[in-house]
Simulated scan of single mutants.
Amino acid sequence: MLLILLVLGACGTPGPEFAGVAPVRVKLGASVFDIRVAGRRAEAIRLNPRPAMRLASVGVPAVLAIERVSGCRVDRLRGDQAMMRAALDCGAGAPEPRRRETYLECDAFDLDADGGALICYPF
């Protein structure tokens, strides 16, 4: 029962980039979205229980909802049928794609007073 409550509670939870941004609820036809805008990025979370198997089935209403709330053109839309993220073109072009953070795991070898070797691997 606790697992079901946790899953249902996460359905409308924004990503970390949009935490603290109040959503704007938009209904377009049969689709209902919570839209959050932060700078030149936006997030749409689909709330209605209507089945949608692919992003293509809800992408157009999501783009229209994001453009209505942000006042900007959607340049790129990524995600799935439940949560979509958009890069916005507000006249200055869309923002650069975010680069994934790289974490390194390093090993030190042959350490002595003169130095040593450090080998790092991304993970």
Rank of each mutant, 00 (worst) to 15 (best):
L3H: 14
L6G: 15
G9N: 14
G12P: 01
P14E: 03
G15H: 04
E17G: 03
E17L: 03
A19E: 15
G20P: 06
G20S: 00
V21Q: 12
L28G: 12
G29K: 10
G29N: 14
A30C: 02
I35M: 12
R36C: 04
V37F: 10
V37M: 11
V37D: 13
G39T: 06
A42P: 02
A42R: 09
E43I: 06
L47V: 09
P51K: 15
P51E: 08
M53A: 12
R54S: 15
A56P: 00
A56E: 10
V58I: 13
P61I: 02
R68G: 10
V69F: 01
V69G: 07
S70N: 05
G71K: 11
C72V: 05
V74R: 12
R78M: 06
G79V: 05
D80E: 04
D80M: 02
A82M: 09
A86P: 06
L88G: 09
C90D: 03
C90K: 14
G91N: 04
G91Y: 05
A92L: 11
G93M: 04
G93D: 10
E96L: 15
P97A: 11
R100V: 08
E101N: 10
Y103S: 09
F109M: 03
F109K: 05
D112F: 01
D114G: 03
D114A: 13
C120L: 08
P122A: 11
